[in-house]
Design a protein around this nucleic acid. Sequence first.
DNA 1: GGGGTGACCCAGT
DNA 2: TACTGGGCCACCC
Length: 103
Amino acid sequence: MEPDEYVEAVLSLVEQIPPGRVMSYGAIADALAEVSGRCSPRRVGTIMAQYGGSVPWHRVVAANGRLVPGHEQQARERLLAEGTPMRGDRVDMAAAAWYPPQP
DNA sequence: GGGGTGACCCAGT
DNA sequence: TACTGGGCCACCC
């Protein structure tokens, strides 16, 4: 898979995350592994840092529920507005975690 | 070619 | 809950 296509895959997957739900970097990497074969959470993080501006990046959080570094305030506001289950400044992953429907 | 770095993850303490 | 160490992989000197 071309690098550009990998970026496209990440972005389109993030766009599919429904309001009120979130995905972790690891979950995204996992879902993409079924298509691209190779991936790692770190790559997803790097891609989001560069291209995340055009997608609902606030629905992408760390696996432990931590919000995006540097944008915690904005992310928290948007997530709350969507009704995402939160616990303090972190996402309640057990309730909010989402995974794309298997074809 | 070698080494540092990062919007990560997991298990152990 | 917070911190640590090891693993991971693309990117940039």
